[in-house]
Design a binder for these strands. Structure first.
Lengths: 206, 206
DNA sequence: AGAGTATGTGAGCAGACCCTCGGGTTTTGA
DNA sequence: TCAAAACCCGAGGGTCTGCTCACATACTCT
C-alpha cells in the first residue's frame, strides 16, 4: 500500500523578506534548469545550487520535488494569463486580424524565450494532480480571450465564445510551437501560419 | 570531454526468428510500459520483464535506453504515416469535408488508444538526436496529406501544399489531443472542433 | 554428431537522486 | 539584551536505475 504522499502545496509560507527571496530564487532556478538541461537534468540539488541556497532550504518550502514543479507551473500559467490580458487590452478597438496578430506575437515571444521549459511543462501538467490549479489559471486565460472575441462576435453566446477561445488557444499554441522549434531563420512564417489558422477557425462557420 | 555516446541505432540485426520475436516484444513492451506508467516508470528492467525477456537480452539489441526509445518512436511514426495514407486513399473522390473528417477520426482513434504514450513521444522526440529518422517518417506523413490536398486544391504549388499539409497536421493533432485528454463523455466535440479548425485553415486565404 | 555461432540469462556494480536530520545563524520582539 | 522563532546548511542514508559480464542454452551447418 502506497503511503499517502504529502500534498503539492508549499510547506511553509515565507514570513521574512529573506525567505521570500529564497522561495523566489528557487522557482526561478527551477525554470532555468529546466530550460537549460530539460527534465533529465532537473534535480533538486541542481536547483538549490543554482538558486544559491542549500538543498535543506529547498525542502523547507516544498515538501517534495513535484511540489516545486507544481509551483513553477502555477507561476508560468499565471504569467501567460497576464500576457494574454495585456495583449487583449492593447488590441481593444482594433480589427480582429490585428488582435490575433498581437496575440500570436505574444505567444511567439514566450515560446522563443523558453522552448524547453514550455515542453517540460506541457508534459508535467498532465502527470501531476494539479487540475485545480490549472482550471483556475486556465479560466483566466480563457476569460481574457473571451473578452477579446466578444468584441468581434457580439452575436455569439458566452458558451460559444468560451469554446472558440479554448480552440483558439490550442491552435495558436501548437502552430507557434511547431514553427519556433524548427528554428527557422526568422519567425515570419510562424506568425503568418498561426494567424492564418486562427482567423480561418474564427471566421469559418460564423 | 564527454566520451562519445554509442549511437541510437540497433546494436545487432536479428537473424533467427526467435530473436526477431524478442526484438518485437521489447518494443511492444516499451510502448505498453510508457502508456501504463509514463516516462517515470519507463525503466529498462520493467520493459524487459514485461517483454518476458531478460535485461541482458534487451542490451543485445539496443546499445542503451535511448536507442530503445528511438526505435519505438520510429515505429509509431511509421504507423501514423500508414494510417494517414489509408485514410487519404479511402477519401479519394469524396468532398474535402469528408476527407478531413476521415483524417480527424483516425487521429482521434490513435490518441484514444494511447494518450500517455503519445505525450511521452512528443517530449522525447525533441530530446533525442533523431532528426534524420523524424524527417523521413515526417515526410511520408506530409506526402500522404499532400496527395489528399492536391485533389482539392489543384491550382496550388507543391510547396504551398506542403506548407498546408504541415499546418494541417499540427492543428489536427493539437485540437484532437486537447479534447481527447479532457476525457469528455463522448468525442463528438473533439471531432467537430478539429474539423472546423482544419477546414477553416484550408479554405481561408484560398 | 559436434563445432561454431547466435541468442538468452540475471546477479550485482557504479553512480545518481530524493530527501532527512542534527545543528548552526539571523531576525524578531519585548 | 536575550530568548524564542524563523531560517539556513550540507553530509550522507536509503533507494533506485542503467548497464555489464561471465556463463548457459538454442540453433545452424557440415
Amino acid at each position: 500500500m502506497a503511503t499517502a504522499k504529502p500534498p503539492l502545496t508549499p510547506k511553509k509560507q515565507p514570513l521574512q523578506a529573506r525567505s521570500r527571496a529564497t522561495d523566489d530564487a528557487l522557482i526561478e532556478a527551477a525554470a532555468h534548469i529546466l530550460e537549460e538541461r530539460g527534465l533529465d537534468g532537473f534535480t533538486t540539488n541542481a536547483v538549490a545550487e543554482r538558486a544559491g541556497a542549500s538543498i535543506g532550504s529547498l525542502y523547507q518550502y516544498f515538501p517534495n520535488k513535484d511540489a516545486l514543479m507544481a509551483a513553477l507551473i502555477a507561476l508560468k500559467q499565471r504569467e501567460l494569463g497576464d500576457t494574454l490580458s495585456e495583449a487583449v487590452a492593447a488590441s481593444s478597438g482594433r480589427s480582429l486580424r490585428h488582435g490575433v496578430r498581437h496575440l500570436v506575437r505574444a505567444a511567439i515571444d514566450l515560446q522563443r524565450a523558453a522552448p524547453r521549459l514550455n515542453a517540460a511543462i506541457d508534459y508535467e501538467e498532465n502527470r501531476l494532480p494539479i487540475t485545480a490549479i490549472l482550471s483556475r489559471t486556465g479560466d483566466d486565460q480563457i476569460a481574457a480571450l473571451v473578452t477579446f472575441l466578444a468584441e468581434h462576435f457580439p452575436a455569439k453566446t458566452k458558451a460559444a465564445l468560451r469554446t472558440d477561445a479554448d480552440v483558439l488557444r490550442t491552435i495558436v499554441r501548437a502552430v507557434v510551437d511547431h514553427y519556433v522549434d524548427r528554428a527557422e531563420p526568422d519567425f515570419r512564417s510562424a506568425e503568418r501560419q498561426s494567424v492564418k489558422a486562427a482567423l480561418g477557425y474564427l471566421r469559418h462557420g460564423a
